[in-house]
Design a protein around this nucleic acid. Structure first.
Lengths: 231, 231
DNA sequence: TTGGCGCCTTGATATATATCAAGCTAAGAT
DNA sequence: ATCTTAGCTTGATATATATCAAGGCGCCAA
């Protein structure tokens, strides 16, 4: 494991506070691999052999049932998945595939659980991390159940605006994947973008410009208890 | 705190393994209160003053946005809510109300966090609990995004069948609340029950009889990665 | 026993969303 | 530079779901 990767991983909240010996132990069994785009890294139902860390590129978490598929989340560096399955040693609930060429660190789940058992501060950090994950999914459920697809898109755009700190930004994923994440078809996403034009949303390819933030805010009614990922 | 309640709480996975001193400390600040039906116990956005334990009765967790409301989960004895907010000391994401007369134990969140900081085995148990919660919400999201309302109802009935171990059972909640939980209107739930008649679902008031489980199974296609809450 | 009330059901209609079938556009390949 | 192709858009249509408005049923209270 080269030192840059080691430092990247150590920088994550999840690993920042753990005992040096624990971190060393965890890194001993870990390795980094580079994957081409569209490679399936894990499949739902499998045993959780590794805790994954996205070091570069991006990864889509998705689920399937009865021939249908939906995107559950997209991960960007530096972040981990799938922690809950690893610590519980329970089958993955989601599959994962690279969206672009990506570097992924693989930490054996067995090591994660072993260190979890011995390093108390690591165990506590995992609590914080899992609580955060849990709350994110709850927010996502509220988004899905309480809002129409147009409202979901409007709030998604406002979250991107906040993340980038700018009224203009590029979508970070294909529109078809965004559609799936927002729980709609690509066709309807197209129409939804049109539907937001009256509120000052200009779309050119994957470039978005919000020309009238106040109008969009009034329509979208963002709520920290749904849209603020930091609380 | 009378001894029965104490024993009930101690019996929960979350508290079963913790140090006796820790448990005593937690119980010292705790108290049990009885509430009439339809009393709002907590409101989303509030600070998490207490970790709640349902000792008897039932509690609905729901969320609101922009004048709309949706049921997120219903809790039965003996179970806790809202652990994630308590340990993170972050605002509640959901509100809670009693559905019937209910006895609720209230454990000060501050105490929970204090003991979490000192009792290592308690910290580890919380990890397991939160991982379980997280996975449940992920399953719920898959249910919502991958299935139609008819399929969600069919699988809900099959889960009740499994829980009760019988082809006949009573719904544990009002149909309107079930509708909200399943992400549909009461009118559509009514029609959905009709729509399941061809698969051997008989409804009389809140009593359900599944006369042809194989047909229903074939239609519903239950999946352990969505419908099995134990993994 | 009998109102009355709340919840559920039903039918009619409206809206939201998905599907299907072309076309269009832009980025990469030759 | 042109071809090719994948992804996106658009319009037409179908389906799913919500809304609105009555009506029915059962449970509780007087």
């Amino acid at each position: 494991m080269i030192d840059t990767y080691r430092k990247d991983i150590r920088g994550l909240d999840l690993f920042a506070d753990m005992e040096p010996e624990s971190f060393d132990a965890l890194m001993r069994g870990a390795y980094v691999q580079s994957f081409p785009p569209q490679i399936q890294l894990i499949s739902e139902g499998e045993a959780p052999d590794f805790l994954h860390v996205v070091l570069s590129g991006s990864v889509d978490l998705f689920s399937t049932w009865n021939g249908r598929e939906t995107s559950m989340a997209t991960l960007y560096p530096i972040s981990t998945f799938i922690l809950a399955a690893s610590v519980k040693n329970a089958p993955y609930l989601m599959s994962a595939r690279t969206l672009e060429r990506s570097r992924i660190a693989l930490l054996p789940s067995e090591d994660v659980r072993a260190i979890f058992d011995t390093d108390n501060s690591f165990a506590r950090t995992i609590v914080t991390e899992l609580a955060q994950c849990y709350r994110s999914v709850v927010k996502n459920t509220k988004d899905l159940k309480l809002r129409t697809s147009l409202e979901r898109l409007a709030n998604y755009l406002l979250r991107q605006r906040r993340r980038t700190g700018s009224d203009e930004f590029d979508l970070r994923m294909e529109k078809r994947r965004l559609a799936s994440f927002l729980g709609m078809t690509p066709e309807n996403l197209s129409r939804a973008f049109k539907g937001l034009e009256p509120y000052g949303v200009k779309v050119k390819g994957s470039h978005i410009a919000i020309t009238n933030p106040d109008d969009l805010l009034q329509f979208a009614k963002p709520d920290p208890l749904i849209d603020d990922y930091s609380i």
